[in-house]
């Protein structure tokens, strides 16, 4: 019985999370809800800038086509708190990118996470700490 109760706790938490309306902080409605995995991406440019930094890379598809992608992360102050810096990426670095592609179908997206060649995982978001802004919009 104890096991069953334990099993129900995460389910209950998941139901609560799904029932909580998401605040539209960043206009992310323009992006797909689930990320796509892109391995072997070669960084061509990393713009550490406001309002959002940009990661640009080349991605070779299964058919051999080389696509040029741009994906954004948060602002430098936000990303610094998550372990990013101006020198995190350099042209030529090979990464695995997890990207929420734009609904418009162009090759731009919102970053979910990046895995560096040494295995370091860098995310674009951290939900381990609560927002200090309650229901109002948080800084980007």
């Amino acid at each position: 019985m104890r096991l069953r109760v334990r099993a129900l706790v995460p389910m209950f938490a998941a139901v609560l999370a799904l029932g909580t309306p998401l605040a539209a902080h960043h206009g992310d409605a323009a992006y797909a809800a689930t990320p796509m995995e892109m391995k072997g991406c070669v960084v061509t440019e990393f713009d550490w800038m406001n309002p959002h930094s940009l990661i640009k890379f080349d991605y070779r598809t299964a058919t051999g086509e080389v696509q040029h992608w741009t994906m954004e992360i948060g602002s430098p102050p936000s990303m610094t708190l998550l372990g990013w810096s101006r020198t995190t990426l350099r042209a030529g670095d090979v990464i695995t990118a997890y990207v929420y592609q734009a609904r418009s179908g162009v090759q731009v997206g919102r970053t979910n996470k990046v895995i560096l060649a040494d295995g370091t995982v860098l995310a674009d978001r951290d939900d381990s700490t609560p927002s200090r802004y309650g229901t109002t919009e948080a800084p980007k």
Partner: peptide, 26 residues
Amino acid sequence: KYLQEQGDPAGSYPDAEPQRLGGGGR
């Protein structure tokens, strides 16, 4: 630069279900 290379190409979907995917958090 951000708007030309990222923000504008991504488009605007004011009637879509709101969602927040990234942008820090901590």
